[in-house]
Write a protein that binds this DNA or RNA. Structure first.
Lengths: 219, 219
DNA sequence: TCAAATCTTAATGAAAGGTTAATAAATGCT
DNA sequence: AGCATTTATTAACCTTTCATTAAGATTTGA
């Protein structure tokens, strides 16, 4: 497994690198985030470990930039024990969060966990990919042209696969929907999403209506 | 017995862990729910103890996520003495509820009770599995295609095995049935369920009519 | 055997879901 | 600002689903 790391503390990077190599994990560290970005565009890695507390630059900005072109699993690590960092980081598309200081073991475990998760996802070969930061969803490698409400509804359904979600929950969890919108609104939005997915109206494959409840997403 | 725990109060986790290990219960605690989720996908546990009052994240969301892929017994614990949490939790598929603060003894008792229940269930190797959250019932590993009323009636019967349930009780406990529906309605629904179970009309194996009362489910 | 209970099928109507069009509010553009 | 575009929302209408009832056949048990 090859991992890229953005960490200005060269000593820490060295320690981790030495530890992880014993478990078959190779680390390539870059102290300069911009150089790291260029490398990321060219080479393939299994994960990125990103230090948030970089000097003179916001780690979250890097995270955003990476997510603009790559879907690589990202573990962010930070000395700031600020919880909002964590929340923000995960929202911006990070996969995991590791507060400093941490045991190299811990990092190893999370790397393994993340790549396993990734493999599982690839097993399924889901035809759906959500790019939350870009607000886009790809279906069969084609971007769907979704309105904000459509994007949010479909995202929510995809993130809760196989579970019937009732209309009320969809309304409340989607920012683009007014809290006092009628439940029929959901039906219309679903209808439009199905159209864009080119679902067969008689027997839709992915967005299934559950009578009396709402809708569920089936991968 | 191996138990996984999601609890951000490390001290409490430590106390419980020390207490329970004496009774042969091993606890693995994770303060980060996302990590816990990944671990759950990989390792096998006998139960999950889930703290609802996690910082910056809704414990109920975690519960839902777990139920998307696992059938593990879940005990939720919460400092919020909010009853709606309890109801919601149980509805989302939790097996038990434990309000904080609680005696470790209490936790031990519930763990034992739950795993006992589980073992009993596994003894029988029931051919029926109810996924309440998905509103699906599997019979011989095949999903039954049930209407809402059929699902509710069959669920109720399965959850009260070997007990004759009278028609009136079924009507009142099933949301999809009008309170003033005639009792004959039940007969029709039962007939349709039997069809979907491919029961032999002459001698049904699982849904038995009890003359003068109603029906009972025999696993 | 006979009356009551249960089973099964078919019919029906109310409720739920699907779709389209109209509208109004928000957004973007010049 | 003013015009054009987008889009959430509602209304209206159609289709489908399914609980419910009715009715007749079959079974049960005293």
């Amino acid at each position: 497994m090859k991992v890229i790391m953005i960490e200005d503390d060269a000593e820490l990077a060295e320690i981790l690198s030495e530890y992880l190599v014993k478990y078959g994990i190779e680390i390539e560290n870059y102290e300069d985030p911009f150089i790291a970005l260029s490398v990321l565009r060219i080479k393939d890695f299994d994960a990125l470990i990103l230090d948030l507390t970089l000097p003179g630059m916001d780690g979250l900005e890097i995270l955003k930039k990476v997510r603009e072109f790559s879907d690589i699993p990202i573990i962010i690590s930070s000395a700031r024990s600020d919880l909002s960092d964590k929340v923000l980081g995960l929202e911006l598309g990070a996969d995991d969060y590791l507060p400093k200081p941490y045991d190299p073991k811990e990092l190893e475990a999370r790397l393994k966990a993340i790549t396993r998760r990734r493999e599982r996802r690839e097993d399924k070969k889901s035809e759906f990919t959500i790019y939350k930061n870009r607000r886009e969803i790809y279906y069969k490698n084609q971007p769907l042209n979704l309105t904000p409400a459509e994007f949010e509804v479909l995202s929510f359904l995809i993130e809760h696969p196989n579970q019937p979600i009732d209309r009320e929950e969809l309304i409340y969890s989607c920012e683009s929907l007014s809290d006092r919108a009628s439940e029929k609104t959901i039906d219309v939005i679903i209808s439009r999403i199905r159209n864009k997915l080119k679902e067969d109206p008689k027997s839709p494959k992915h967005i299934i209506s559950v009578r009396g409840i709402g809708y569920k997403f089936v991968p």
